[in-house]
Design a protein around this nucleic acid. Structure first.
Lengths: 234, 234
DNA sequence: GCGTGAACCATTTAAAGATTGGTTCAATTT
DNA sequence: AAATTGAACCAATCTTTAAATGGTTCACGC
């Protein structure tokens, strides 16, 4: 047995052992695994080797670790999601639209100043994807991606976090999204043109035009939402 | 002296004494008042009577109290601020100003639509307090309270949370705040006028004017900040 | 050169005690 | 009789200290 093969075997053995532990229920109710020191004893392996296995599992997304806190199975808690859940109780669809109308035009304007050519190409691609999606779910997905890309390319971390918060609240209101998805072909055509205008104004580096185009788009969405709500109440 | 008049005098005396304390600077930099037990000794009044005065001041919105924590002057922090802090955005001062310029004019506009008479009275009071503060710490405290009140009175929980996010980042940049505090009397006068205009436009229910007034105020702040930064780099 | 175990470092948690506002109760004053 | 008062008790928060836990470094052995 050549040493480097023995080592490779050892590494994958540890990895398999940790996986087995996770799958067989060696996990507390809150998803907490035994400590590194405990695991290294339990699996009869050095802590350093264990850490390499845990590194791999963390890279894979199976676990998350926090210094001082421990090692946990699953996704790390999302502070934005928790904040969104807390305020979502008091927020209705109109509040969401109001917040979007506050934040997203400004994001579009900043994006027009800061977007890179790669960003613009990706936006064009996404507009195309939205247009060509045959079902509403897919269109919604690409639509969300476009708005997130604009928010990111705006290059302001606070506004990006604020956008993420609005997005989180919005995406947790599924019944509203279902109404949004009941779009007529005529509305889809309008939105495509609006998306194209937004991206064109951003590509032109015209912050004022980008702001206005995004505002127009969201105002249209908002009016559509209000019309649907009024129809539902009669 | 009829007995019931003596009692009424005592109650209003305590109330006036606490007000005086607040206005004369018996407040820590974070807005914290002495504890109830300290105040009752300091003002030579029973704690029960003092609490009645504090109850009144709290009802009036001048102070807020939290069991186990203390008694504070100004507008309470938004409950979602704790969660906002966990999101852990890092940003420089210009990003903070950029985010404020995005969010706060819109908050002012919504506030102009939704503020109640009590809110307006409180805003006027806060503007007065900012103006009359003899040190920069106190001015900063009242200034923060005014902006928080406007954000709250805007009545959109999502934007309130977004504001809390910005406020959290901003309040963690203490060295920046020290620069802000190096304000000339001329600048203070300008800011007072701007604050007054903001509140007047809100009281008039003029959303567009309120938005413009807040934008003007923050643009002024932003320029001042940039000027200070450029001076520091030479 | 690589892996290992030990030592050290940085962050979080837990526990205990202290602090602070909130409430109740009995005694006193009005 | 009603209101006030001071003391006692309760509930929430803070502070301090030590322990726990992941993160990193270092010296040694293979």
């Amino acid at each position: 047995m050549p040493p480097h093969l023995k080592n490779a075997e050892n590494a994958s053995r540890v990895l398999a052992q940790v996986r087995q532990l996770i799958e067989s229920g060696g996990v507390a109710a809150d998803g907490k695994l035994p400590t590194e020191r405990e695991l290294s004893i339990q699996l009869d392996v050095g802590r350093r080797a264990l850490r390499r296995a845990l590194d791999a599992l963390e890279a894979e997304g199976l676990i998350w670790r926090r210094q001082g806190k421990g090692t946990f199975v699953g996704e790390p808690p999302d502070p934005t999601g928790r904040l969104a859940a807390e305020i979502g109780v008091n927020a209705d669809a109109l509040s969401v639209m109001e917040a979007r109308l506050c934040i997203e035009p400004e994001l579009a304007a900043l994006c027009a100043i800061r977007a890179k050519p790669d960003d613009i190409a990706r936006m064009r691609f996404l507009v195309e994807r939205i247009d060509q999606s045959s079902d509403a779910d897919a269109a919604e997905l690409w639509d969300g991606s476009l708005h997130r890309l604009i928010a990111r390319a705006a290059g302001n971390p606070i506004l990006m976090a604020a956008f993420a918060l609005v997005d989180e609240v919005r995406s947790s209101q599924l019944w509203q999204d279902e109404r949004d998805r009941a779009r007529s072909p005529r509305l889809r055509e309008i939105y495509t043109q609006q998306h194209q205008l937004i991206v064109t104004t951003i590509a032109d580096g015209n912050a004022d035009a980008a702001r206005a185009a995004m505002r127009e788009h969201l105002t249209h969405l908002s009016r559509n939402l209000q019309a649907v709500r009024e129809t539902d109440q009669t």
